[in-house]
Amino acid sequence: MNDFLSTCTSGGCGAKIGASDLSDHLKNLPKLNNKNLLIGFEEADDAAVYRLNDNEAIIQTVDFFSPMVDDPYIFGKIAAANALSDVYAMGGTPFIALNIVCFPERLPKESLQRMLQGGAEKIVESGATLAGGHSIYDHEPKYGLSVTGRIHPDNLVQNNTPKVGDALILTKPLGVGIILAAHRVAQVSAEEFEFAIEQMIHLNKYAAAKMMGYSVHAATDVTGFGLLGHALEMAGKDYSLVIDTEMLPIIPKALELANEFIVTAGGQRNRLHLGSQVELEDIQSGMQEIMFDPQTSGGLLISVAAEDASKLLKEIQETDKEASIIGTVVEREQKPLILL
């Protein structure tokens, strides 16, 4: 199976185009004036949302990437879980999925079958229906999904609408990108690597279902732009997020590896993007890398009313044991992100 990964120069959400570059590429696209397009690309939210009528809207997203693990079956599960996550972050329910496949002719067809099987199993777990897809030959394997979800327009959860006083909950531990990088140079144990795999294949379906019963004002999934990149999007122009680094859930060994300077190129792109928007001088270098680290199929960052936070966290921890309250939302201060 090693050929499956060996030709890939990058993989998972670490392969994403950097946030600064992406913004430059999108800024000149024509703006569409459609009153039913509730969320488009201008908002930098997790998915597009289109209102069909007063009682129903569809959520549309697409996500795919090259492998970060050798096993095609596990890769298929991770890629599908990651693609489905955008619908959960918006508060919706996925109901249709289409495969997106790029595959080299030289690789064994068994690898393709196993990759698709892994993805299909996660789609079934989500409750959605696999309805087809599109495939091409390529130099590197790539896989993901186009996912359509449904939601009542009044229940839509955006990524940049927190309220002052909200508590911030992170549902999965950080450090996936660092663990994957360390695994490629044999610096982590099988148990440590398996723990990271379990986090990536775990659907955000379960945490999202719990948040619907509480006063959740904003949510996003933490993926390629790292915790701080997605937190910056949540802060928007009107708020600052205060993050307590001692409360961050972290994958075992990831902080130790970061302190030993095992880092990722995607993390460095995220650092450049944040620039002066966060004060880092009092934060030790390894912890900085944890917060910049791209998360493949990461958890949800949820902004919830403070009075609901403990109850919601307890419910989420029934399925996402590492979930933690990591900070609060305050009035906009000098910087949008404040680290303690």
Rank of each mutant, 00 (worst) to 15 (best):
N2V: 09
D3E: 10
F4T: 08
G11L: 01
G11A: 05
A15E: 10
A19L: 15
D21R: 12
L22G: 07
N33T: 14
K35A: 15
D45S: 11
L52S: 00
Q60D: 10
Q60S: 13
S66W: 03
V69E: 05
D71C: 01
P72F: 06
P72D: 06
P72H: 05
G76N: 03
N82K: 06
D86S: 15
A89H: 04
T93D: 12
P94N: 03
A97L: 01
F103I: 03
E105Y: 14
Q113T: 04
V124S: 03
T129G: 01
D138I: 07
D154L: 04
N155A: 10
N155H: 12
N160D: 15
K163G: 08
L170Y: 08
K172S: 07
P173A: 12
V176D: 03
F193S: 02
F195C: 07
I197Q: 00
H202Y: 02
K210A: 12
K210V: 13
Y214V: 14
H217L: 01
H217D: 02
T220Q: 06
V222C: 08
T223F: 07
L232Y: 14
M234V: 03
A235R: 05
Y239L: 13
I243A: 02
M247L: 15
A254S: 14
N259H: 13
V263F: 10
N270G: 08
V278K: 06
E281I: 07
D282V: 10
D282L: 14
S285E: 15
P294T: 09
T296W: 04
S297A: 12
I302S: 04
V304S: 06
E315S: 08
Q317R: 14
A323R: 00
S324W: 00
T328H: 10
V329D: 11
L340Y: 12
